[in-house]
Computed example of a mutant assay.
Amino acid sequence: MTIFTRRTFLGTTAAVLAAPAIVRAQGAPIHLGTLTPLTGVGGSYGPSMRDAMAGVVSAVNEAGGVLGRQIELISEDTQTSPEAAVRAARKLIDVDGVSAIMGTWASSVTTAIAPLCWESKTMLFCVSGADSITELPHLGFIARTQPNSKLQIRVAGKFMIDEGAKSMAWIGPQTPFAASSIEILREIAGANGASMEDLIYEADKSTYRSEVDQILRSKPDFIMLGGYAADSTVLLRDIWQAGYEGKIIGPAYAVNKTLMDALPAEVLEGVFTWEGAPAVDSSAYSRVQKILGVDDVDPYSAQTYDHANLAILSMAAAGDASGDAIRGSLRTISQGDGQSVDNAVDGLAALAGGINYSGASGACDFDEIGDITGTQFIFKMIKGGATGVYKRV
């Protein structure tokens, strides 16, 4: 039988308090929420986005947890629908009591649930691109790892010019980033002596042939698609049937595997895509490859891997598991001067000396309104029914 004296009690307590947070998990679980598009037009991305976060949480729990507690990950489906996302977010916040919601994808979804998050002091990590998101009065409760649409469109517009565009066109549905995309492309075209036309169409139509005929009257030599996978599938078919012989570029989240599976190879021949690129040479990227069991990690899964690590390390740095604590400590652990780490387990062990988290999506440095300050971009081209890397910038 062990007899505890005051001296042995104090010594034991001191040893426990001095031990890393990951070895002291004892209390009620911390709840973190994933809210990804498991169905709907974003459904091809959501499962791996969720699984990347689950892999992070599993590793931390196996190592002992954080702040004396295990983490329970609660996953919900946005259905790529603002209405469904609001219902799911209310459940995560009001019923499950999550400290953070991670992984929202479509800009309309993130915009819809953002007020619920900042009003409840729940941290929101998103991969949505609309500039308006971080312009909301979110009080610091939004962090975006996806480059905003202004940065994305500027990079793509420069690519179009570099590829010889003299007559540019943008065609897409009304989205939170449609107006800014058109404005930026007009600016780029004007600065480079190119013309620019645009057309906003009604979403969810079975054909866009009349809209295609209208935009082709301007004789564009390079067209940018501004929609999602479902309408871009119809649009690409109609552009091909109209006999267009110029160049086309679309965001990779729209010109994705679902779209490619739905169209003949000849319709897609020569189409470009672009997206923010993961840090493919990083050790963090290798970790996500292992978690997902894939060679190529999509940008959104790389980002959500970072979401989970950032949330966990921020809580540990603050010594508190609330959303407010995550907000307050995010930049302390993501852009500090301490040891560079690429995962929460190593970060928790090194936290006392200060850390600088850099993840699978790159350096996770945020500006004052929560936007990521920089990332890589990758351009791909479809040839023979397959997508290959064309350029990295």
Rank of each mutant, 00 (worst) to 15 (best):
Q146G: 01
I223S: 09
A252T: 09
D324W: 01
S81C: 05
V267T: 11
V155A: 10
I22L: 13
D306S: 05
L310G: 06
L38S: 04
V109L: 06
Q174F: 00
R217W: 01
S44Y: 01
A317V: 12
V294H: 03
A325P: 04
T34R: 03
A316H: 00
R217E: 09
L310E: 13
M168H: 06
Q152N: 13
A194Q: 07
E183F: 12
T273E: 02
H31K: 14
L348M: 15
L116G: 04
T304M: 08
T145F: 12
A318W: 03
H138M: 09
T12K: 12
Q376I: 06
S44N: 03
A262M: 00
P220Q: 11
R327I: 11
T12A: 14
S218A: 15
F141W: 07
I153S: 07
V267C: 08
W274Q: 05
L116Q: 02
V60R: 01
S44R: 01
W274H: 12
A18K: 07
V95P: 01
Y300H: 12
M168I: 13
A156I: 08
A302T: 02
T258H: 00
A63K: 06
A15D: 13
V345M: 07
V212T: 05
A321C: 04
A112S: 11
A156T: 08
M196G: 08
D261Y: 03
V56A: 08
Y253V: 00
A344H: 10
D320L: 00
V267P: 04
S99A: 15
I142W: 07
Y285L: 10
L313V: 07
E119C: 01
H31N: 15
T233Q: 09
D337C: 02
A277V: 06
W170D: 05
T12Y: 11
I291P: 08
V389N: 08
Q152T: 05
L330D: 06
Q70N: 14
R186I: 01
S44T: 03
F366Y: 14
I171R: 02
A143R: 13
E266D: 15
R90K: 12
I326S: 06
Q241W: 03
Q376E: 13
A63G: 10
G370N: 10
F125L: 14
L292T: 02
G362K: 11
A191Y: 02
D281L: 13
D295K: 14
R87I: 08
E211L: 00
T111A: 15
K380C: 07
A130C: 08
A179D: 15
A84M: 06
I239L: 15
E266F: 08
G40V: 03
I333Q: 06
G374W: 09
G370Q: 10
R209L: 11
C126W: 01
G97K: 04
G164F: 10
A59V: 03
G353W: 00
A349M: 09
A265G: 04
A189L: 08
K383P: 01
D261T: 09
